[in-house]
């Protein structure tokens, strides 16, 4: 059950990245310009969906899974802050237009 808590950590990580990139300050850190409105809406939606998924996975993991999920989410948020501070270019790839 503890394992499910840890599964929720990558989901929380993805949710945090989406939430951070939907903010102008961090979007500018990564791309050099503010977040366009349409992209902001999509990022916020995906962030919320990923958060709900992360919480659900933690809850399914029971009490221990939930504790692991909460602590793992903190670590995931720390990883996002570190990436934004040290290597924001890594996140730029996520926002690069996909080749058709």
């Amino acid at each position: 059950m503890e394992l499910l808590g840890f599964v929720s950590a990558p989901l929380a990580f993805a949710a945090f990245i989406s939430a951070a990139l939907s903010m102008d300050r961090h979007h500018r850190q990564v791309t050099g310009h503010a977040c366009p409105a349409e992209r902001r809406a999509r990022l916020r939606l995906s962030s919320k969906a990923l958060f709900v998924l992360a919480i659900l996975v933690g809850v399914i993991g029971g009490g221990v899974g939930l504790v692991a999920g909460i602590l793992g989410a903190g670590l995931a948020a720390g990883a996002v802050v570190t990436t934004l501070t040290v290597r924001p270019a890594l996140l730029a790839r996520l926002l690069a237009p996909r080749a058709s």
Partner: peptide, 17 residues
């Protein structure tokens, strides 16, 4: 006391934070 090794590491890192 319920925590396995991985979760104890999370407690440790949270404690450091």
């Amino acid at each position: 006391e319920f925590a396995g090794p991985a979760l104890r590491w999370l407690y440790f890192f949270a404690g450091l934070s």
